[in-house]
Design a protein around this nucleic acid. Structure first.
Length: 550
RNA sequence: GUCCCCGUAGCUCAGUGGACAGAGCAACCGCCUUCUAAGCGGUCGGUCGCAGGUUCGAAUCCUGCCGGGGACGCCA
Protein backbone atom coordinates (compact mmCIF):
# COMPACT_ATOMS: atom_id res chain seq x y z
CA UNK A 1 0.00 0.00 0.00
CA UNK A 2 1.61 3.21 -1.12
CA UNK A 3 1.44 6.64 0.46
CA UNK A 4 -0.86 7.85 -2.30
CA UNK A 5 -3.18 4.88 -2.03
CA UNK A 6 -3.48 5.40 1.72
CA UNK A 7 -4.34 9.03 1.24
CA UNK A 8 -6.80 8.39 -1.57
CA UNK A 9 -8.64 5.92 0.63
CA UNK A 10 -8.76 8.35 3.54
CA UNK A 11 -10.18 11.05 1.27
CA UNK A 12 -12.79 8.64 -0.07
CA UNK A 13 -13.75 7.78 3.51
CA UNK A 14 -14.04 11.47 4.35
CA UNK A 15 -16.26 12.01 1.33
CA UNK A 16 -18.53 9.13 2.35
CA UNK A 17 -18.73 10.37 5.95
CA UNK A 18 -19.55 13.89 4.76
CA UNK A 19 -22.34 12.53 2.60
CA UNK A 20 -23.65 10.37 5.46
CA UNK A 21 -23.68 13.29 7.89
CA UNK A 22 -25.31 15.60 5.39
CA UNK A 23 -22.51 18.17 5.11
CA UNK A 24 -22.04 17.11 1.50
CA UNK A 25 -24.96 16.41 -0.82
CA UNK A 26 -24.44 14.64 -4.13
CA UNK A 27 -26.91 14.31 -6.98
CA UNK A 28 -28.51 10.86 -6.81
CA UNK A 29 -27.40 9.79 -10.30
CA UNK A 30 -23.94 11.38 -10.07
CA UNK A 31 -20.92 9.19 -10.72
CA UNK A 32 -18.01 9.59 -8.34
CA UNK A 33 -14.79 10.79 -9.95
CA UNK A 34 -11.62 8.89 -9.00
CA UNK A 35 -9.55 10.54 -6.26
CA UNK A 36 -6.60 12.20 -7.93
CA UNK A 37 -3.44 12.61 -5.87
CA UNK A 38 -0.53 14.61 -7.20
CA UNK A 39 2.63 16.23 -6.05
CA UNK A 40 2.28 20.01 -6.06
CA UNK A 41 4.76 21.91 -8.17
CA UNK A 42 5.45 24.29 -5.31
CA UNK A 43 6.65 23.02 -1.92
CA UNK A 44 4.58 25.60 -0.06
CA UNK A 45 1.50 23.80 -1.33
CA UNK A 46 2.43 20.82 0.77
CA UNK A 47 3.75 17.37 -0.02
CA UNK A 48 0.66 16.00 -1.72
CA UNK A 49 -2.48 17.57 -3.12
CA UNK A 50 -5.87 16.50 -4.40
CA UNK A 51 -8.28 18.24 -6.75
CA UNK A 52 -11.17 16.03 -5.65
CA UNK A 53 -13.25 18.94 -4.37
CA UNK A 54 -13.19 20.55 -7.81
CA UNK A 55 -13.96 17.24 -9.43
CA UNK A 56 -16.96 16.80 -7.18
CA UNK A 57 -18.35 20.27 -7.85
CA UNK A 58 -20.71 19.24 -10.69
CA UNK A 59 -22.04 16.23 -8.77
CA UNK A 60 -22.51 18.29 -5.60
CA UNK A 61 -23.77 21.42 -7.36
CA UNK A 62 -21.73 23.36 -4.88
CA UNK A 63 -18.66 25.57 -4.82
CA UNK A 64 -15.36 23.65 -4.73
CA UNK A 65 -14.18 25.64 -1.69
CA UNK A 66 -17.27 24.64 0.27
CA UNK A 67 -16.85 20.98 -0.70
CA UNK A 68 -13.20 21.10 0.30
CA UNK A 69 -14.15 22.48 3.74
CA UNK A 70 -16.68 19.68 4.21
CA UNK A 71 -14.09 17.06 3.24
CA UNK A 72 -11.52 18.49 5.63
CA UNK A 73 -14.05 18.50 8.48
CA UNK A 74 -14.72 14.79 7.94
CA UNK A 75 -11.10 13.86 7.23
CA UNK A 76 -9.41 11.36 9.54
CA UNK A 77 -5.75 11.41 8.58
CA UNK A 78 -3.82 8.16 8.19
CA UNK A 79 -0.60 7.93 10.22
CA UNK A 80 1.40 9.28 7.28
CA UNK A 81 -0.47 12.59 7.13
CA UNK A 82 0.28 15.38 9.58
CA UNK A 83 -1.94 18.13 8.28
CA UNK A 84 -4.39 19.24 5.63
CA UNK A 85 -5.37 22.66 4.37
CA UNK A 86 -7.62 24.15 1.73
CA UNK A 87 -6.40 26.48 -1.00
CA UNK A 88 -8.27 28.32 -3.71
CA UNK A 89 -9.92 27.38 -5.94
CA UNK A 90 -10.50 24.18 -3.96
CA UNK A 91 -7.29 22.22 -3.62
CA UNK A 92 -6.73 19.98 -0.64
CA UNK A 93 -3.08 20.27 0.36
CA UNK A 94 -1.60 17.63 2.60
CA UNK A 95 1.56 17.65 4.66
CA UNK A 96 3.22 14.31 5.22
CA UNK A 97 4.29 13.64 8.80
CA UNK A 98 8.09 14.09 8.86
CA UNK A 99 8.66 11.44 11.50
CA UNK A 100 6.52 8.93 9.65
CA UNK A 101 8.31 9.77 6.40
CA UNK A 102 11.80 9.26 7.80
CA UNK A 103 10.71 6.05 9.51
CA UNK A 104 9.98 4.52 6.10
CA UNK A 105 13.70 4.06 5.39
CA UNK A 106 13.66 0.78 7.29
CA UNK A 107 10.76 -0.79 5.37
CA UNK A 108 12.24 0.33 2.04
CA UNK A 109 15.57 -1.20 2.97
CA UNK A 110 13.93 -4.40 4.17
CA UNK A 111 11.92 -4.75 0.96
CA UNK A 112 15.12 -4.51 -1.10
CA UNK A 113 14.58 -5.55 -4.70
CA UNK A 114 10.91 -6.22 -3.95
CA UNK A 115 10.24 -2.57 -3.11
CA UNK A 116 7.54 -1.21 -5.40
CA UNK A 117 7.00 -4.52 -7.16
CA UNK A 118 3.90 -6.69 -7.54
CA UNK A 119 1.43 -3.84 -7.20
CA UNK A 120 -0.83 -4.91 -10.07
CA UNK A 121 -4.33 -5.44 -8.73
CA UNK A 122 -5.07 -7.94 -11.50
CA UNK A 123 -1.97 -9.80 -12.63
CA UNK A 124 -2.34 -10.83 -16.26
CA UNK A 125 -0.58 -13.16 -18.65
CA UNK A 126 0.87 -10.86 -21.29
CA UNK A 127 2.65 -11.68 -24.51
CA UNK A 128 5.00 -8.96 -25.73
CA UNK A 129 6.15 -9.41 -29.30
CA UNK A 130 8.89 -7.09 -30.45
CA UNK A 131 11.76 -6.53 -32.88
CA UNK A 132 10.60 -9.33 -35.21
CA UNK A 133 12.85 -7.90 -37.91
CA UNK A 134 12.97 -9.94 -41.08
CA UNK A 135 15.99 -12.25 -41.25
CA UNK A 136 17.18 -10.72 -44.50
CA UNK A 137 19.93 -8.63 -43.00
CA UNK A 138 21.54 -7.56 -39.74
CA UNK A 139 19.66 -5.39 -37.27
CA UNK A 140 20.08 -1.75 -38.12
CA UNK A 141 19.71 1.25 -35.87
CA UNK A 142 16.07 1.58 -36.87
CA UNK A 143 15.37 -1.67 -35.02
CA UNK A 144 16.98 -0.40 -31.83
CA UNK A 145 14.08 1.63 -30.56
CA UNK A 146 11.60 -1.22 -30.72
CA UNK A 147 14.12 -3.55 -29.13
CA UNK A 148 14.70 -1.30 -26.13
CA UNK A 149 11.08 -0.27 -25.72
CA UNK A 150 9.96 -3.90 -25.85
CA UNK A 151 12.64 -4.99 -23.43
CA UNK A 152 12.03 -2.24 -20.87
CA UNK A 153 8.25 -2.54 -21.15
CA UNK A 154 8.55 -6.27 -20.53
CA UNK A 155 10.67 -5.61 -17.46
CA UNK A 156 8.18 -3.03 -16.17
CA UNK A 157 5.11 -5.21 -16.70
CA UNK A 158 6.79 -8.15 -15.11
CA UNK A 159 7.94 -6.03 -12.14
CA UNK A 160 4.40 -5.00 -11.24
CA UNK A 161 3.39 -8.64 -11.21
CA UNK A 162 2.28 -9.60 -14.70
CA UNK A 163 3.38 -12.88 -16.21
CA UNK A 164 5.25 -11.75 -19.33
CA UNK A 165 6.43 -13.80 -22.30
CA UNK A 166 8.82 -12.03 -24.68
CA UNK A 167 8.49 -13.15 -28.23
CA UNK A 168 10.28 -12.67 -31.56
CA UNK A 169 8.32 -13.42 -34.72
CA UNK A 170 10.74 -14.83 -37.21
CA UNK A 171 9.71 -14.55 -40.83
CA UNK A 172 11.11 -17.59 -42.59
CA UNK A 173 8.28 -18.05 -45.05
CA UNK A 174 7.77 -15.34 -47.62
CA UNK A 175 9.27 -14.52 -50.97
CA UNK A 176 11.95 -12.31 -49.46
CA UNK A 177 13.74 -15.38 -48.12
CA UNK A 178 14.03 -16.75 -51.68
CA UNK A 179 15.06 -13.30 -52.84
CA UNK A 180 17.86 -13.24 -50.29
CA UNK A 181 18.95 -16.74 -51.32
CA UNK A 182 19.10 -15.74 -54.99
CA UNK A 183 20.99 -12.57 -54.12
CA UNK A 184 23.60 -14.45 -52.13
CA UNK A 185 23.95 -17.13 -54.79
CA UNK A 186 24.33 -14.54 -57.55
CA UNK A 187 27.01 -12.75 -55.57
CA UNK A 188 28.82 -16.03 -54.99
CA UNK A 189 28.80 -16.85 -58.69
CA UNK A 190 29.64 -13.33 -59.74
CA UNK A 191 26.34 -13.01 -61.61
CA UNK A 192 24.19 -9.89 -61.78
CA UNK A 193 21.89 -9.47 -58.80
CA UNK A 194 18.14 -9.92 -59.23
CA UNK A 195 16.37 -6.63 -59.99
CA UNK A 196 15.08 -6.18 -56.46
CA UNK A 197 17.86 -8.22 -54.90
CA UNK A 198 19.57 -7.48 -51.60
CA UNK A 199 22.78 -5.50 -51.65
CA UNK A 200 25.17 -4.49 -48.98
CA UNK A 201 28.35 -5.80 -47.45
CA UNK A 202 26.61 -8.51 -45.45
CA UNK A 203 25.39 -10.17 -48.68
CA UNK A 204 29.00 -10.48 -49.80
CA UNK A 205 29.95 -11.89 -46.43
CA UNK A 206 27.24 -14.49 -46.75
CA UNK A 207 28.35 -15.34 -50.29
CA UNK A 208 31.92 -15.81 -49.11
CA UNK A 209 30.78 -17.95 -46.22
CA UNK A 210 28.68 -20.31 -48.33
CA UNK A 211 30.01 -23.87 -48.16
CA UNK A 212 30.90 -25.40 -51.54
CA UNK A 213 28.46 -28.25 -50.96
CA UNK A 214 25.61 -25.76 -50.67
CA UNK A 215 26.57 -24.10 -53.95
CA UNK A 216 26.59 -27.51 -55.56
CA UNK A 217 23.24 -28.44 -54.06
CA UNK A 218 21.69 -25.22 -55.31
CA UNK A 219 23.16 -25.69 -58.76
CA UNK A 220 21.77 -29.22 -58.93
CA UNK A 221 18.19 -28.03 -58.52
CA UNK A 222 17.85 -24.55 -60.05
CA UNK A 223 14.12 -24.28 -59.29
CA UNK A 224 14.81 -24.73 -55.59
CA UNK A 225 18.06 -22.77 -55.48
CA UNK A 226 16.59 -19.64 -53.91
CA UNK A 227 14.80 -21.57 -51.21
CA UNK A 228 17.82 -23.74 -50.41
CA UNK A 229 20.29 -20.88 -50.14
CA UNK A 230 17.69 -18.66 -48.50
CA UNK A 231 17.08 -21.16 -45.71
CA UNK A 232 20.80 -21.35 -45.04
CA UNK A 233 21.29 -17.59 -45.25
CA UNK A 234 18.38 -16.66 -42.96
CA UNK A 235 19.60 -19.10 -40.32
CA UNK A 236 22.99 -17.46 -40.45
CA UNK A 237 21.50 -13.96 -40.34
CA UNK A 238 19.32 -15.00 -37.45
CA UNK A 239 22.37 -16.12 -35.50
CA UNK A 240 23.84 -12.67 -36.06
CA UNK A 241 20.62 -11.01 -34.92
CA UNK A 242 20.59 -13.11 -31.78
CA UNK A 243 24.18 -12.12 -31.08
CA UNK A 244 23.34 -8.42 -31.54
CA UNK A 245 20.35 -8.70 -29.23
CA UNK A 246 22.45 -10.49 -26.67
CA UNK A 247 24.88 -7.61 -26.76
CA UNK A 248 21.96 -5.25 -26.13
CA UNK A 249 20.94 -7.34 -23.17
CA UNK A 250 17.63 -8.11 -24.87
CA UNK A 251 16.41 -11.61 -24.27
CA UNK A 252 13.49 -13.54 -25.74
CA UNK A 253 11.54 -16.46 -24.34
CA UNK A 254 10.01 -17.60 -27.62
CA UNK A 255 11.21 -17.45 -31.20
CA UNK A 256 8.13 -18.16 -33.28
CA UNK A 257 8.66 -19.08 -36.91
CA UNK A 258 6.08 -17.97 -39.42
CA UNK A 259 6.32 -21.31 -41.23
CA UNK A 260 5.17 -23.09 -38.05
CA UNK A 261 1.86 -21.24 -38.22
CA UNK A 262 1.21 -22.80 -41.60
CA UNK A 263 2.76 -26.20 -40.87
CA UNK A 264 0.89 -26.41 -37.57
CA UNK A 265 -2.45 -25.69 -39.24
CA UNK A 266 -3.06 -22.47 -37.29
CA UNK A 267 -3.71 -20.44 -40.43
CA UNK A 268 -6.10 -22.90 -42.03
CA UNK A 269 -8.00 -23.54 -38.80
CA UNK A 270 -8.39 -19.81 -38.18
CA UNK A 271 -9.60 -19.17 -41.70
CA UNK A 272 -12.05 -22.08 -41.38
CA UNK A 273 -13.36 -20.53 -38.19
CA UNK A 274 -13.79 -17.16 -39.91
CA UNK A 275 -15.46 -18.85 -42.85
CA UNK A 276 -17.87 -20.73 -40.60
CA UNK A 277 -18.97 -17.49 -39.00
CA UNK A 278 -19.50 -15.87 -42.38
CA UNK A 279 -16.61 -13.43 -42.43
CA UNK A 280 -14.76 -14.95 -45.39
CA UNK A 281 -15.68 -14.97 -49.06
CA UNK A 282 -14.14 -15.82 -52.43
CA UNK A 283 -13.82 -13.24 -55.18
CA UNK A 284 -11.56 -12.78 -58.21
CA UNK A 285 -10.00 -16.14 -57.41
CA UNK A 286 -8.78 -14.90 -54.03
CA UNK A 287 -9.98 -15.48 -50.46
CA UNK A 288 -11.06 -12.37 -48.57
CA UNK A 289 -11.75 -11.36 -44.99
CA UNK A 290 -14.76 -9.09 -44.66
CA UNK A 291 -12.93 -6.50 -42.58
CA UNK A 292 -15.42 -3.81 -43.56
CA UNK A 293 -17.96 -5.51 -41.26
CA UNK A 294 -15.84 -4.16 -38.43
CA UNK A 295 -15.29 -0.66 -39.70
CA UNK A 296 -12.27 -1.17 -41.93
CA UNK A 297 -12.30 0.84 -45.15
CA UNK A 298 -11.81 -2.23 -47.36
CA UNK A 299 -11.83 -6.02 -47.22
CA UNK A 300 -8.49 -7.81 -46.99
CA UNK A 301 -7.03 -10.68 -48.98
CA UNK A 302 -6.04 -13.80 -47.05
CA UNK A 303 -5.09 -16.10 -49.95
CA UNK A 304 -4.06 -14.59 -53.24
CA UNK A 305 -5.48 -15.78 -56.55
CA UNK A 306 -2.27 -17.76 -57.06
CA UNK A 307 -3.09 -19.67 -53.87
CA UNK A 308 -0.28 -18.21 -51.78
CA UNK A 309 -1.11 -16.74 -48.37
CA UNK A 310 -0.55 -13.08 -47.57
CA UNK A 311 1.16 -11.81 -44.43
CA UNK A 312 -2.30 -11.17 -43.11
CA UNK A 313 -3.03 -14.91 -43.31
CA UNK A 314 -0.10 -15.57 -41.01
CA UNK A 315 -1.21 -12.75 -38.72
CA UNK A 316 -4.63 -14.36 -38.34
CA UNK A 317 -3.13 -17.74 -37.51
CA UNK A 318 -0.66 -16.10 -35.13
CA UNK A 319 -3.36 -14.35 -33.09
CA UNK A 320 -5.13 -17.65 -32.64
CA UNK A 321 -1.94 -19.46 -31.77
CA UNK A 322 -0.90 -16.85 -29.23
CA UNK A 323 -4.29 -16.75 -27.53
CA UNK A 324 -4.38 -20.54 -27.41
CA UNK A 325 -1.44 -20.30 -25.04
CA UNK A 326 -3.67 -18.64 -22.45
CA UNK A 327 -2.61 -14.99 -22.67
CA UNK A 328 -4.96 -12.31 -21.35
CA UNK A 329 -3.31 -9.68 -23.49
CA UNK A 330 -1.18 -9.55 -26.61
CA UNK A 331 1.09 -6.55 -27.10
CA UNK A 332 2.55 -6.06 -30.56
CA UNK A 333 5.37 -3.57 -30.75
CA UNK A 334 5.41 -2.50 -34.37
CA UNK A 335 6.99 0.24 -36.39
CA UNK A 336 4.69 3.09 -37.30
CA UNK A 337 4.74 1.85 -40.89
CA UNK A 338 2.55 -1.08 -39.78
CA UNK A 339 -0.22 1.31 -38.90
CA UNK A 340 -2.36 0.08 -41.80
CA UNK A 341 -2.43 -3.52 -40.57
CA UNK A 342 -3.59 -2.80 -37.03
CA UNK A 343 -7.30 -2.61 -37.78
CA UNK A 344 -7.47 -5.77 -39.86
CA UNK A 345 -5.68 -7.95 -37.31
CA UNK A 346 -7.80 -6.67 -34.43
CA UNK A 347 -10.90 -7.09 -36.57
CA UNK A 348 -9.97 -10.68 -37.33
CA UNK A 349 -9.47 -11.36 -33.63
CA UNK A 350 -12.87 -9.89 -32.95
CA UNK A 351 -14.46 -11.90 -35.74
CA UNK A 352 -13.06 -15.06 -34.16
CA UNK A 353 -14.74 -14.17 -30.90
CA UNK A 354 -11.81 -12.64 -29.02
CA UNK A 355 -11.84 -9.43 -27.08
CA UNK A 356 -10.22 -6.88 -29.40
CA UNK A 357 -8.97 -4.95 -26.37
CA UNK A 358 -6.79 -7.93 -25.55
CA UNK A 359 -4.93 -7.35 -28.81
CA UNK A 360 -2.96 -4.15 -28.55
CA UNK A 361 -0.53 -2.68 -31.03
CA UNK A 362 1.99 -0.13 -29.86
CA UNK A 363 3.22 1.76 -32.88
CA UNK A 364 6.75 2.97 -32.34
CA UNK A 365 7.29 6.25 -34.13
CA UNK A 366 10.03 6.62 -36.67
CA UNK A 367 13.57 7.50 -35.73
CA UNK A 368 15.31 9.73 -38.24
CA UNK A 369 18.99 9.06 -38.16
CA UNK A 370 20.94 12.13 -39.00
CA UNK A 371 24.58 12.89 -39.50
CA UNK A 372 25.63 16.51 -39.92
CA UNK A 373 22.05 17.51 -40.59
CA UNK A 374 21.49 15.02 -43.40
CA UNK A 375 19.21 12.03 -42.99
CA UNK A 376 20.82 8.62 -43.36
CA UNK A 377 18.66 6.26 -45.40
CA UNK A 378 17.88 2.87 -43.93
CA UNK A 379 17.19 0.23 -46.50
CA UNK A 380 18.35 -3.35 -46.54
CA UNK A 381 17.57 -3.62 -50.21
CA UNK A 382 19.94 -0.79 -51.11
CA UNK A 383 22.45 -1.92 -48.53
CA UNK A 384 22.66 1.64 -47.26
CA UNK A 385 22.18 1.40 -43.56
CA UNK A 386 24.04 1.65 -40.31
CA UNK A 387 24.04 -1.47 -38.23
CA UNK A 388 23.03 -1.45 -34.62
CA UNK A 389 26.43 -2.78 -33.66
CA UNK A 390 28.12 0.22 -35.31
CA UNK A 391 26.05 2.65 -33.26
CA UNK A 392 26.69 0.81 -30.02
CA UNK A 393 30.41 0.97 -30.70
CA UNK A 394 30.06 4.75 -30.85
CA UNK A 395 27.64 5.60 -28.05
CA UNK A 396 27.54 2.57 -25.77
CA UNK A 397 24.67 0.30 -24.75
CA UNK A 398 23.72 2.12 -21.53
CA UNK A 399 23.51 5.51 -23.27
CA UNK A 400 21.47 4.02 -26.12
CA UNK A 401 19.12 2.26 -23.71
CA UNK A 402 18.59 5.49 -21.82
CA UNK A 403 18.05 7.54 -24.98
CA UNK A 404 15.38 5.29 -26.45
CA UNK A 405 13.49 4.49 -23.24
CA UNK A 406 13.39 8.18 -22.27
CA UNK A 407 11.02 9.14 -25.06
CA UNK A 408 7.33 8.40 -25.46
CA UNK A 409 7.13 5.77 -28.18
CA UNK A 410 4.58 7.78 -30.17
CA UNK A 411 6.97 10.70 -30.56
CA UNK A 412 9.10 10.82 -33.66
CA UNK A 413 12.69 11.58 -32.75
CA UNK A 414 15.84 12.65 -34.48
CA UNK A 415 18.97 10.76 -33.58
CA UNK A 416 22.02 12.71 -34.59
CA UNK A 417 24.96 10.34 -34.52
CA UNK A 418 27.55 13.09 -34.16
CA UNK A 419 25.53 14.71 -31.41
CA UNK A 420 25.04 11.36 -29.70
CA UNK A 421 28.77 10.79 -29.68
CA UNK A 422 29.69 14.23 -28.35
CA UNK A 423 26.88 14.17 -25.81
CA UNK A 424 27.38 10.63 -24.63
CA UNK A 425 29.67 11.86 -21.88
CA UNK A 426 27.00 14.32 -20.77
CA UNK A 427 24.21 11.77 -21.00
CA UNK A 428 21.94 11.79 -17.96
CA UNK A 429 22.41 8.04 -17.65
CA UNK A 430 25.87 8.68 -16.23
CA UNK A 431 24.42 11.09 -13.72
CA UNK A 432 22.23 8.34 -12.33
CA UNK A 433 25.01 5.80 -12.37
CA UNK A 434 27.27 8.31 -10.68
CA UNK A 435 24.81 8.76 -7.83
CA UNK A 436 24.85 5.01 -7.32
CA UNK A 437 28.65 4.90 -7.37
CA UNK A 438 28.77 7.74 -4.86
CA UNK A 439 26.37 5.99 -2.50
CA UNK A 440 28.40 2.80 -2.82
CA UNK A 441 31.55 4.72 -2.03
CA UNK A 442 30.08 6.18 1.15
CA UNK A 443 28.99 2.72 2.26
CA UNK A 444 32.51 1.41 1.64
CA UNK A 445 34.02 4.17 3.75
CA UNK A 446 31.56 3.41 6.52
CA UNK A 447 32.40 -0.27 6.45
CA UNK A 448 36.09 0.61 6.77
CA UNK A 449 35.22 2.67 9.87
CA UNK A 450 33.10 -0.16 11.23
CA UNK A 451 29.92 1.90 10.94
CA UNK A 452 26.84 -0.03 9.82
CA UNK A 453 23.54 1.38 8.50
CA UNK A 454 20.87 1.41 11.18
CA UNK A 455 17.31 2.22 10.15
CA UNK A 456 15.70 1.83 13.59
CA UNK A 457 15.87 5.50 14.60
CA UNK A 458 15.59 7.29 11.23
CA UNK A 459 12.16 8.60 12.18
CA UNK A 460 13.52 10.83 14.93
CA UNK A 461 16.97 11.52 13.43
CA UNK A 462 16.32 12.37 9.79
CA UNK A 463 14.48 15.69 9.85
CA UNK A 464 16.66 17.76 7.52
CA UNK A 465 14.77 19.03 4.45
CA UNK A 466 17.20 17.26 2.12
CA UNK A 467 16.72 14.01 4.03
CA UNK A 468 12.96 14.41 3.97
CA UNK A 469 12.94 15.20 0.25
CA UNK A 470 15.09 12.16 -0.47
CA UNK A 471 12.80 9.79 1.44
CA UNK A 472 9.79 11.29 -0.32
CA UNK A 473 11.40 10.49 -3.67
CA UNK A 474 12.14 6.95 -2.53
CA UNK A 475 8.49 6.49 -1.59
CA UNK A 476 7.43 7.54 -5.08
CA UNK A 477 9.14 4.63 -6.77
CA UNK A 478 6.11 2.31 -6.54
CA UNK A 479 3.90 4.99 -8.11
CA UNK A 480 6.35 5.69 -10.94
CA UNK A 481 6.61 2.00 -11.72
CA UNK A 482 2.84 1.49 -11.56
CA UNK A 483 2.22 4.47 -13.83
CA UNK A 484 4.69 3.18 -16.42
CA UNK A 485 3.01 -0.23 -16.38
CA UNK A 486 -0.51 1.15 -16.66
CA UNK A 487 0.34 3.45 -19.52
CA UNK A 488 2.45 0.85 -21.28
CA UNK A 489 5.09 3.54 -21.56
CA UNK A 490 8.71 3.38 -20.50
CA UNK A 491 9.85 6.97 -20.13
CA UNK A 492 8.41 7.35 -16.64
CA UNK A 493 11.25 5.15 -15.39
CA UNK A 494 14.29 7.17 -16.51
CA UNK A 495 12.52 10.36 -15.46
CA UNK A 496 12.05 8.94 -11.97
CA UNK A 497 15.63 7.69 -11.77
CA UNK A 498 16.98 11.09 -12.71
CA UNK A 499 14.89 12.86 -10.07
CA UNK A 500 15.96 10.39 -7.41
CA UNK A 501 19.62 10.88 -8.33
CA UNK A 502 19.06 14.63 -8.15
CA UNK A 503 17.49 14.39 -4.68
CA UNK A 504 20.43 12.25 -3.58
CA UNK A 505 22.91 14.84 -4.87
CA UNK A 506 21.17 17.55 -2.85
CA UNK A 507 21.29 15.34 0.24
CA UNK A 508 24.97 14.62 -0.38
CA UNK A 509 25.64 18.35 -0.60
CA UNK A 510 23.69 19.32 2.52
CA UNK A 511 24.16 16.37 4.85
CA UNK A 512 27.53 14.94 5.71
CA UNK A 513 26.87 11.23 6.20
CA UNK A 514 29.95 10.18 8.13
CA UNK A 515 30.40 12.44 11.12
CA UNK A 516 31.29 12.51 14.82
CA UNK A 517 27.68 11.74 15.67
CA UNK A 518 27.64 7.97 15.34
CA UNK A 519 23.85 7.57 15.72
CA UNK A 520 23.17 10.17 13.04
CA UNK A 521 25.81 8.60 10.80
CA UNK A 522 24.16 5.19 11.11
CA UNK A 523 20.73 6.62 10.34
CA UNK A 524 22.05 8.52 7.32
CA UNK A 525 23.87 5.41 6.16
CA UNK A 526 20.54 3.60 6.20
CA UNK A 527 19.12 6.35 3.98
CA UNK A 528 22.11 6.08 1.63
CA UNK A 529 21.70 2.34 1.48
CA UNK A 530 17.98 2.63 0.79
CA UNK A 531 18.72 5.11 -2.02
CA UNK A 532 21.33 2.80 -3.47
CA UNK A 533 18.82 -0.04 -3.35
CA UNK A 534 16.08 1.90 -5.16
CA UNK A 535 18.56 3.17 -7.77
CA UNK A 536 19.49 -0.44 -8.44
CA UNK A 537 15.81 -1.32 -8.82
CA UNK A 538 15.21 1.56 -11.21
CA UNK A 539 18.28 0.95 -13.34
CA UNK A 540 17.44 -2.75 -13.45
CA UNK A 541 14.09 -1.90 -15.04
CA UNK A 542 16.04 -0.12 -17.76
CA UNK A 543 18.57 -2.90 -18.12
CA UNK A 544 21.33 -0.46 -17.24
CA UNK A 545 24.28 -1.34 -15.02
CA UNK A 546 24.60 0.11 -11.50
CA UNK A 547 28.38 0.50 -11.08
CA UNK A 548 29.97 0.48 -7.62
CA UNK A 549 32.51 3.03 -8.74
CA UNK A 550 33.12 5.27 -11.71
C1' G B 1 -8.12 12.36 -51.55
C1' U B 2 -8.85 9.27 -46.77
C1' C B 3 -6.70 7.61 -42.08
C1' C B 4 -2.81 7.69 -37.99
C1' C B 5 1.20 10.22 -35.18
C1' C B 6 3.65 14.74 -34.15
C1' G B 7 4.24 20.45 -33.69
C1' U B 8 6.20 23.15 -26.17
C1' A B 9 13.17 27.18 -24.65
C1' G B 10 18.82 27.62 -29.68
C1' C B 11 18.89 21.66 -29.81
C1' U B 12 16.66 16.82 -27.84
C1' C B 13 12.35 15.95 -25.22
C1' A B 14 8.71 15.71 -20.51
C1' G B 15 3.97 17.58 -19.16
C1' U B 16 -2.65 12.53 -21.10
C1' G B 17 -8.41 19.07 -17.40
C1' G B 18 -5.80 22.34 -12.24
C1' A B 19 -2.19 26.62 -8.58
C1' C B 20 3.46 31.58 -11.73
C1' A B 21 4.76 25.84 -18.28
C1' G B 22 9.60 21.81 -16.77
C1' A B 23 14.30 18.75 -17.50
C1' G B 24 18.79 17.55 -20.10
C1' C B 25 22.19 19.53 -23.64
C1' A B 26 24.19 24.18 -25.56
C1' A B 27 25.69 29.44 -23.76
C1' C B 28 27.37 32.63 -19.60
C1' C B 29 29.03 33.43 -14.12
C1' G B 30 30.68 31.16 -9.61
C1' C B 31 32.31 26.61 -6.34
C1' C B 32 37.35 21.14 -5.22
C1' U B 33 42.41 21.34 2.28
C1' U B 34 36.08 18.09 3.81
C1' C B 35 32.16 10.99 2.45
C1' U B 36 33.62 10.52 -5.93
C1' A B 37 33.73 18.04 -9.38
C1' A B 38 30.88 12.21 -14.35
C1' G B 39 29.16 16.92 -8.99
C1' C B 40 26.80 21.68 -6.83
C1' G B 41 24.69 26.84 -7.06
C1' G B 42 23.23 30.83 -10.28
C1' U B 43 22.05 33.46 -15.14
C1' C B 44 20.08 33.42 -20.08
C1' G B 45 16.14 31.39 -22.83
C1' G B 46 8.87 29.93 -24.34
C1' U B 47 2.59 34.70 -27.89
C1' C B 48 2.87 25.78 -25.68
C1' G B 49 2.10 25.96 -34.77
C1' C B 50 -2.47 29.40 -35.91
C1' A B 51 -7.81 30.55 -35.17
C1' G B 52 -12.28 29.47 -32.97
C1' G B 53 -15.13 26.47 -29.27
C1' U B 54 -16.32 23.51 -24.51
C1' U B 55 -15.10 24.44 -19.08
C1' C B 56 -14.99 27.71 -12.81
C1' G B 57 -10.17 26.42 -15.12
C1' A B 58 -7.08 24.25 -21.65
C1' A B 59 -0.19 22.91 -23.54
C1' U B 60 -3.88 19.00 -22.32
C1' C B 61 -10.68 18.01 -24.75
C1' C B 62 -13.63 19.41 -29.70
C1' U B 63 -13.66 21.77 -34.83
C1' G B 64 -11.06 24.07 -38.81
C1' C B 65 -6.52 25.59 -40.98
C1' C B 66 -0.90 25.56 -41.50
C1' G B 67 3.67 22.66 -41.13
C1' G B 68 6.54 17.70 -40.52
C1' G B 69 6.41 12.28 -40.70
C1' G B 70 3.88 7.69 -41.74
C1' A B 71 0.00 4.45 -43.88
C1' C B 72 -3.46 3.59 -47.66
C1' G B 73 -1.21 -3.48 -53.02
C1' C B 74 -3.59 -10.30 -54.37
C1' C B 75 4.65 -5.95 -51.80
C1' A B 76 7.33 -7.49 -47.62
Amino acid sequence: MSLRDDLARAIADARDRAVASGTLTLQPDASLPPIGIERPAKPEHGDLASNVAMQLAPAARSAPMRIAEALVAAFEPPPSIAGVSVAAPGFLNFRVDPVWMASQVGPILAAGTDFGRNTASEPRRINVEFVSANPTGPLHVGNARGAFVGDVLSRVLSAVGHDVVREYYFNDFGAQVINLGLSVLARRRGDDLPDDGYRGAYVEDLADAMPDELVAEASASPDEAGRIVGAWATERVRAGIEASLERLGVRFDVWKEESSLHDGGWVSRSVDQLRASGHVYEADGATWFRSTDFGDDKDRVIFRSNGLPTYFASDIGYVTEKLSRGFDELIYIWGADHHGTVARVRNAARAMGHDPDAVRMLLIAWVRFVRDGAEIPMSKRSGEFITLDDVLDEVGVDAARWFFSSRAFSTGIDFDLELAKTQSNENPVYYVQYAHARASSILRHAADADLRPDPTRTGELLAHPAEQALVRHLLEFPDALATAAERRETHEVPRYCYELASAFSAFYRDCKVLSEDADLSRARLALVDATRSVLVNGLDLLGIAAPESM
